[in-house]
């Protein structure tokens, strides 16, 4: 009877996993809720955002749909952020391969950003910028609180080591030779 019960529970769990796995295991499609336009020389680019407005630390999908498609074109995206700037090649979005993009990417700090596109293709070189892209303050609790909660295991480890240190102090005060 007990064995039968265990088997029933296991089979039910496996069935539930099998039913729910495709849902939890499905890759999210890229859904664009807002667009902006940039003219990079001869190349019009439509910039798509999966979340709008953009908030600091909140990740979203960016798509960069260049007129005529990405085939035969290469480009560089230069981002100027508050206190930081970087460049990266324009790469196809992993879940929307017909356009360039950034997948689940967060802008870390609030403020005004500039996204500059440098594109090379059959019509020559073109450059254009989206400015400013305003990034609002981060949502959620203050970071100090989030870090406080997240470093509790470290405090636990330090407490454990401190207690062990104190309780072995007397026995370790006389140096013991290593084996």
């Amino acid at each position: 009877m007990t064995v039968r019960r265990v088997v029933t529970v296991l089979v039910t769990t496996a069935a539930l996993l099998a039913v729910t796995a495709p849902v939890a295991g499905a890759y999210e499609p890229v859904e664009i809720v807002h667009t902006e336009k940039v003219q990079a020389g001869p190349y019009p680019i439509v910039i798509g955002f999966s979340t709008w407005p953009v908030r600091a630390m909140q990740s979203l999908d960016f798509t960069f749909a260049v007129d005529g498609g990405v085939d035969g074109k290469t480009g560089v995206l230069a981002i100027t952020a508050p206190g930081d700037s970087w460049r990266e090649p324009l790469a196809r979005h992993p879940r929307k391969r017909d356009v360039w993009g950034l997948d689940v990417r967060a802008m870390q700090r609030p403020g005004d950003y500039t996204l500059t596109f440098r594109v090379d293709g059959p019509l020559g070189h073109g450059e254009g910028a989206l400015t400013p892209l305003r990034v609002l303050d981060q949502p959620g609790p203050p970071m100090a609180l989030s870090w406080g909660i997240s470093t509790l295991p470290l405090l636990g480890l330090i407490a454990f080591l401190a207690i062990a240190w104190r309780r072995t102090r007397r026995r370790l005060s006389v140096p013991t030779p290593s084996r």
């Binding site: 999210e28 630390m57 909140q58 990740s59 979203l60 967060a106 949502p139």
Partner: peptide, 8 residues
Amino acid sequence: GIYGFDAV
């Protein structure tokens, strides 16, 4: 749920 499924 708040910050999205970032890979940070």
